[in-house]
Design a protein around this nucleic acid. Sequence first.
DNA 1: ACCTGAACACCGTTCAAGT
DNA 2: ACCTGAACACCGTTCAAGT
Lengths: 205, 205
Amino acid sequence: MRKTLRSDLETGSRRRDELLAAAEQLIVERGLSALTVDDVTGRAGVAKGTFYIYFSAKGELLAALRERYAAAICAEQERALAELPAEDHGGRLDRWVAEAIGAHLEHERLHDALFHHELPADAIKTGVTAANPQLDLLERILGAGAAAGAFALADVETATALLYGAMHAAVDLLLDRGQRPLDVDRVLSATQRFARGAVGADAAG
Amino acid sequence: MRKTLRSDLETGSRRRDELLAAAEQLIVERGLSALTVDDVTGRAGVAKGTFYIYFSAKGELLAALRERYAAAICAEQERALAELPAEDHGGRLDRWVAEAIGAHLEHERLHDALFHHELPADAIKTGVTAANPQLDLLERILGAGAAAGAFALADVETATALLYGAMHAAVDLLLDRGQRPLDVDRVLSATQRFARGAVGADAAG
DNA sequence: ACCTGAACACCGTTCAAGT
DNA sequence: ACCTGAACACCGTTCAAGT
């Protein structure tokens, strides 16, 4: 019996965990764009080549980190939701939102590195934080509707950002080829209903 | 008068435009992760060093492309919206959503490269398309509420994706340090109202 | 004023050799 | 079976020299 207690799946070696932990530390300390295989192995106290025994490429480590992070957050959410009665659907939704935002904020740097839309870091450092005209347009639409009393919005600025994010999610959903082909019309009309509800548009429009 | 007609700002040289065009072609053809300064200058028919006369770094080119792309889409949207009466707020919102999704779908590859959450491309090729447990959780919440009649949702799957995108947008909003500090509570409650509206939660919750 | 392209530095990946 | 680290390939960036 040479088998270890842990499974032999790539997912389960101690070395691998050490490399993951080292990478997570380094990302938090210095950011994703500064992350180097050399640094990771250095921090973990092994030779560079060892990295490729446990990961086929740097990208695989990042994917694994992301997965681990999402799983951890999710476990926390499950716990929080367990406190609420199953019939309190609105309350459960509120709680999901609060927990999700809270968890990501707690792990700021990591969230940023693993989930934020990522351009090579220099783009930001160079200070080219482009104003987004599409966002401005949406904000004007929402602002006008709110002013006219057609939308029930206390916070136009936040709603604009959220709706923009939702719209991008719709696009991503449609572009994600791995899935069975989704009906564009279906997603579109679902998004429009979603948007109307989110801004509190009255039935008349 | 040696000055050219075009402004001398870095934004406005013909060479620069040629480099941008070359980069856009190459991204559409081969994807962002295959984009090389060498290829860009090769396609544009200039020497490698020329690139750095017009851009301080590769990231600056990407930022410029993104800006150009967003501006183009926005111009199209403005045109479409001009056809609708200013008082038809719900209609204008519908139109914004439809145009935004449509435009991004038309330029699939480019959208993907410039806006999609980006891990080094190998992560995806390696097939580690991690199932996201957080998404599953949200889908269960929405599904349960819909089944109970507490939420008015025709398409739970799509709504889940959109709400998840909106939630991430809220986090990004809070993490974006450049801005004046936003109140976490304000964003949180705005997000919760947004979510309730989007899923058609009845007033009772 | 603009362009060139060789040279440099850095970093992801491989592999023959070690235990 | 696991580890090593030198070597390789690739690519972003610089710069002295050209027109």
